[in-house]
Simulated assay, not measured.
Amino acid sequence: MNFFTSTKTLTHEGTMRMLQAGIERAEQTGQPQCLVIVDASGEVSGELRMSGAKFLSRKSALAKAVTAASNRAPSANIPEGFRPLIAAATGGSVTGLPGGLPIMLDGTCVGGVGVGSGSGEQDIEVANAMLSAIGADTFE
C-alpha cells in the first residue's frame, strides 16, 4: 500500500514572478488591480493591492482565487443560478465572478489566482498573464 503522494507546490519565487507579471499587465491596461494567489488548500501565498485599486476588490479577488483552486476551474464557471446560494452558504468565500483561474501544472491544480478591480475581461487578462509567467495553463 502507498500512503503518500508526491505533491507539486508553488514556491515563493513563483509567487513573486506571478505578482510581478500581474502588476505589469495591469499597468499596460491602465487598470490598477488587486492580485491574490492561493495554494491548493486556499491559503494565501501572495497578494497585492496596487495603488488606485478598489480596496473592496481584495475580498473579491481572494474569493475568486479560492473558488478557482477549490473547483479546479475558472470562478466564472459556477452556474449563474447557483452563485447567490453558494456565496451565501460560504459566507462570501466562493464566487462566480470572472477573474479567478486555477494554477494548473501538468494536469495538477497547485492553487488559484484571483484578480479584481477591473472589468471581468481585464481581470481575466491579468490572471492569465500571471499564469503565463510560470508556464501554467491559461484560460479563455
Score class of each variant (00 low, 15 high):
M1D: 15
F4L: 11
T5G: 03
S6R: 08
S6F: 06
T9I: 02
L10K: 01
T11W: 09
H12A: 09
H12Q: 06
E13V: 10
T15L: 06
T15M: 13
L19G: 03
L19C: 03
I23G: 10
E27F: 02
G30P: 05
Q31Y: 10
Q31V: 14
Q31W: 06
Q31C: 14
Q31N: 10
Q33P: 00
C34D: 04
L35P: 00
V36P: 03
I37G: 07
I37P: 03
I37C: 07
V38G: 00
S41A: 09
G42T: 03
G42I: 14
E43M: 10
G46F: 04
E47L: 12
L48K: 12
R49P: 02
R49M: 14
R49C: 09
M50F: 12
A53T: 02
K54F: 13
F55N: 04
S57E: 07
R58S: 13
S60P: 01
S60R: 07
A63Q: 08
A63E: 09
V66K: 13
T67W: 03
T67Q: 04
A68V: 05
A69D: 10
A69T: 05
N71F: 15
R72M: 10
R72V: 07
A73S: 14
S75A: 14
S75P: 00
S75K: 01
I78P: 10
E80C: 00
G81Y: 14
G81K: 15
G81Q: 15
F82W: 13
A88W: 08
A89H: 14
A89F: 08
L101G: 02
P102E: 09
I103W: 06
M104L: 15
L105F: 05
L105N: 10
G107D: 05
G116W: 11
G118L: 14
G120M: 08
G120L: 06
E121T: 10
I124P: 01
E125A: 04
V126R: 08
N128V: 00
A133H: 02
I134S: 08
D137E: 13
F139N: 06
F139M: 07
E140W: 11
